[in-house]
Design a protein around this nucleic acid. Structure first.
Lengths: 214, 214
DNA sequence: TAGATTGTTAATCGATTAACAATC
DNA sequence: TAGATTGTTAATCGATTAACAATC
């Protein structure tokens, strides 16, 4: 629960969805050396209206300054804190197939405060290998590893059929969040958060837009 | 533009977002041999309310029957048609790095009416290879290939820095849609649709949910 | 026919935008 | 101080839910 001036506030889901985009663009501006930006300019960059941007940010605090705008670095750090990425999150990956290997090699989220500690697979040919500095372990050791290494996020990159099973194990071991790439709607106890990457859904939406707009 | 009873209707974006999920679950029900389903039962499965489900579907036609519910197969096919996947879409992939190779090997979207024809890369060590039956070609041939092979979707799996450049080339060659995996907001002419898979954004949302809900 | 469940209108809820006073 | 731009309230817009007549 977020608190603002002592009161508990529920953040609208629509706002939460936009925060990562704000953070990403602030990172780019920071890299470019931009010091300050107005809600109008920044709204244009991220594709939202200026009032919406101000509304969104004001759920978390008053980061701007009248007559000036927003300090890019300050806002960047504030949003990082809001999203809980100033302190790194430890993650494990389950499933070292093609997608799993791609995730091991991905650099984008490492830069954003996430730390992939190890990977697990059921395939004995993969177990023991080290890919891009990440050791692949036997899935039998999943629970113990999670408990011993302060892991709070599990990434699921296994086939559809075993995804729920892996999710159950992750929850049992005590992860707080699951980043799921299997095309399944996982059922987990409601203390655990799930974020689905149902890639094919994006492709179907694209198809709809193309074919529906003739 | 969708037409219903001769009138042009704009479909709310919120509805469009849910269609792929409906389609996926209908496919699963069909496989299970379920013949009919009520909006209440199906709503429970997909996680929306029964009235919302009926509202959503009625944007496209009256697929149900009072006192009976919906015929699973009929609805499945109707939605496939709505999303434009009864006729296969031809796609090309640009960027055969780790993620690109994972996409080449992905089976999920092949089942859903999408046909990956070939891949392109700039790296001479990859050009000429065949991965999982998909030939890797030199990116110099991108435009000609798209024009010659009735390609309407381009998949971008190249690094951030070159993504916009690739998008420009795809648009110039005449694709109608871009499925983008680079963490960039592409700028394209508005006749072309873009669907972004900004994976890290999902992870940041997950982090927010975990850290924000203490 | 009676029971079930849709299709659809009206009511509610939530999210976005407009407007402007506060203030740097 | 004057100009700029925020923070915030009120108005509008869009999406969801409730309710029920239509009908299989």
């Amino acid at each position: 629960m977020i608190h603002k001036e002592g009161k508990a506030v529920v953040i609208p889901t629509a706002v939460i969805k936009r925060l990562p985009k704000y953070h990403r663009h602030l990172g780019k501006l920071l890299k470019k050396g931009v010091e300050k930006i107005s809600s109008r300019e920044f709204g244009e960059i991220v594709g939202v209206s200026a009032p919406q941007l101000r509304q969104d940010l004001n759920h978390f605090g008053n980061f701007g300054q009248q007559g000036y705008g927003y300090n890019v670095e300050k806002l960047y750090n504030a949003l990082a804190k809001v999203m809980g990425i100033e302190k790194k999150s430890n993650m494990v990956l389950v499933g070292v197939g093609n997608l799993g290997q791609a995730l091991i090699s991905a650099t984008d989220f490492k830069r954003r405060g996430f730390n992939l500690c190890t990977a697990f697979d059921i395939n004995p040919r993969l177990v023991g290998m080290t890919i891009n500095g990440i050791k692949v372990r036997d899935i039998a050791n999943l629970e113990q590893y999670i408990k011993d290494n302060d892991i709070n996020i599990g990434i699921i990159a296994v086939p559809e059929e075993t995804a729920q099973d892996v999710a159950d194990k992750l929850v049992l071991a005590g992860v707080k969040g699951i980043w799921n790439f299997a095309p399944v709607d996982l059922k987990v106890s409601k203390e655990v958060s799930v974020e689905n990457e149902h890639l094919t859904e994006g492709l179907l939406r694209l198809s709809f837009k193309i074919k529906g707009e003739i």
